[in-house]
Simulated assay, not measured.
Amino acid sequence: MPRPREEFDDLREFQFRDPEEVLEDDQMYTVYEIARRLQGVDPERELDVETENILLDWAIPWMLDHSDAFVFAEPDDENEPGYYGLK
């Protein structure tokens, strides 16, 4: 349900960063790590499943939009996520 704009104290511009601003060029990351870096969340911090899913909801479309900037490496095990890095 929509809420009146005046109910919010902190309104900020909606901006996405480029992959080069989020990732180190000599590192490979799981999609979970990328999702956390996009939001400035410590990769070691424990998160509940719902929060992790929300972060992924933002990260996956961002990665698809910037897919030409990424390379992919297969996971070590089929039950683990793959790794992504800058091209």
Rank of each mutant, 00 (worst) to 15 (best):
7 E>A: 13
38 L>F: 03
46 E>Y: 04
7 E>N: 10
55 L>F: 14
54 I>C: 03
54 I>H: 11
51 T>Y: 14
27 Q>T: 12
22 V>F: 13
52 E>F: 09
11 L>N: 02
71 V>G: 11
51 T>H: 13
17 R>M: 12
63 M>S: 06
56 L>A: 08
4 P>H: 09
77 D>C: 02
19 P>N: 07
41 V>F: 14
57 D>Y: 03
34 I>H: 07
15 Q>R: 14
30 T>A: 08
74 E>L: 09
21 E>K: 03
32 Y>I: 02
67 S>V: 11
69 A>R: 15
45 R>S: 14
55 L>C: 05
65 D>M: 03
46 E>P: 14
36 R>K: 15
59 A>Y: 09
50 E>K: 04
80 E>P: 00
79 N>M: 09
49 V>N: 04
64 L>C: 05
79 N>I: 03
30 T>G: 14
23 L>H: 09
67 S>D: 13
43 P>Q: 03
13 E>C: 02
64 L>F: 11
54 I>V: 12
55 L>I: 04
53 N>S: 11
50 E>S: 12
87 K>S: 12
40 G>F: 12
28 M>L: 15
75 P>H: 04
8 F>R: 00
25 D>Y: 11
42 D>Y: 14
55 L>V: 03
5 R>Q: 12
18 D>Y: 10
81 P>T: 03
47 L>Q: 07
31 V>P: 15
79 N>K: 04
36 R>L: 12
11 L>G: 01
73 A>V: 03
80 E>N: 04
60 I>H: 00
28 M>G: 05
82 G>Y: 10
7 E>Q: 10
46 E>C: 02
53 N>L: 11
51 T>C: 06
74 E>R: 05
4 P>K: 06
18 D>S: 10
39 Q>K: 13
71 V>T: 12
70 F>T: 00
57 D>W: 00
53 N>V: 04
26 D>P: 12
44 E>Y: 03
